[in-house]
Computed example of a mutant assay.
Amino acid sequence: MKNNNIKPGNLYVVATPIGNYDDISKRALLTLSKVDFLLAEDTRKTGLLLKYFNIKKKLYSYHSYNEKQSAKKFLEKIKQGYNTALVSDSGTPLINDPGYRIIKLCRKKYIKIKIIPIPGPCSAISALSVSGLPTNRFCYEGFLSSKKTKRIKRLQELKFECRTIIIYEATHRVLKCLDDIKNIFGENRYIVLAKELTKKWENIHGDNISNLIKWIKLDLNKIKGEIILIISGYKILSKTNMQLSPKIIKTLLNLKKELPIKKAINITADIYSIKRNFLYKFYIKNKY
């Protein structure tokens, strides 16, 4: 054990390749070779990466199942002066991967631990960058719930999100998720499906959701592997300089819960000075 009187070690948050080992940075390799030990989501996968680059380091398991208990234990080691690298299975740690708890502990004001990011690959950003969808504003949702009711509820909350939406999905749930999106967002919403980025079977394909589902069903191998969905944001409708904003839609839907649709449309139209006929056509088109 190191002397408790020396200053705490550093915690390095190191991004690793999402598939192609050649994507690792020189700085990441240098860091991994110099730290005292690594915290890895899966020691077997990280072990293969280290072996490829001929790096020999002690690996400790640090994943979502033991994170709560492990964070305090490894914090003590860092406080004792051990320099530590945090890595996930692939990509940038903490982006839908464990690590939040130990970072939060190290950030406490009375603990003088330096946390150093070593940037690199991130599958969500990589997919977004080649999607052809707006990148100036986007929201990251990670994995939606595996439970249909919770997934549908979240999708309903996202229906009028104007930013590009990034979602991860498991192979066995992709079609179920896309069907839910189609039913809630409408069949014309544009989606890009990115599969196995940087790997041999990489495939990036975009289309409106109806066509995308048909394309997948022609060959289910198209959804085998790591999947990212990049969904175009909600487009605010306009007609003769008139906009139908999410705020207006929300008012209409709230009124519809308590009133007949005709009356809800009339009240909403009066509140926002919108033509009733336009509001009615919007309501019918979106199948509320």
Results as ranks from 00 to 15, higher is better:
residue 110 Y to W: 05
residue 112 K to R: 09
residue 117 P to W: 06
residue 125 I to P: 09
residue 105 L to I: 11
residue 95 I to L: 13
residue 110 Y to E: 15
residue 125 I to G: 05
residue 109 K to I: 05
residue 86 L to F: 09
residue 111 I to H: 00
residue 99 G to I: 04
residue 112 K to Y: 11
residue 111 I to P: 00
residue 96 N to V: 12
residue 86 L to A: 10
residue 98 P to W: 00
residue 115 I to E: 10
residue 88 S to G: 12
residue 105 L to S: 07
residue 123 S to R: 06
residue 99 G to N: 04
residue 100 Y to W: 06
residue 95 I to R: 06
residue 116 I to A: 04
residue 101 R to M: 12
residue 91 G to Y: 04
residue 103 I to C: 02
residue 123 S to M: 04
residue 125 I to V: 15
residue 100 Y to I: 02
residue 109 K to G: 01
residue 123 S to Q: 06
residue 90 S to N: 10
residue 118 I to D: 14
residue 118 I to G: 11
residue 104 K to W: 02
residue 89 D to G: 11
residue 109 K to V: 03
residue 101 R to G: 03
residue 117 P to I: 12
residue 96 N to W: 02
residue 91 G to F: 07
residue 87 V to R: 09
residue 107 R to T: 03
residue 103 I to N: 00
residue 115 I to G: 07
residue 112 K to T: 09
residue 100 Y to P: 01
residue 90 S to K: 05
residue 94 L to Q: 05
residue 87 V to I: 15
residue 111 I to R: 01
residue 100 Y to G: 02
residue 114 K to I: 12
residue 94 L to K: 10
residue 118 I to L: 10
residue 117 P to V: 13
residue 126 S to F: 12
residue 119 P to I: 07
residue 120 G to K: 10
residue 106 C to M: 09
residue 126 S to L: 15
residue 97 D to S: 08
residue 118 I to A: 13
residue 126 S to G: 11
residue 94 L to A: 06
residue 90 S to Q: 03
residue 117 P to F: 06
residue 91 G to L: 07
residue 118 I to P: 07
residue 114 K to G: 03
residue 118 I to F: 05
residue 123 S to Y: 08
residue 108 K to E: 15
residue 114 K to M: 11
residue 96 N to G: 11
residue 103 I to A: 01
residue 90 S to E: 04
residue 96 N to C: 15
residue 108 K to Q: 15
residue 106 C to S: 13
residue 105 L to T: 05
residue 115 I to T: 13
residue 113 I to R: 00
residue 89 D to F: 06
residue 98 P to N: 08
residue 89 D to M: 04
residue 123 S to P: 02
residue 91 G to E: 02
residue 94 L to S: 08
residue 112 K to L: 14
residue 105 L to V: 04
residue 124 A to C: 11
residue 104 K to A: 15
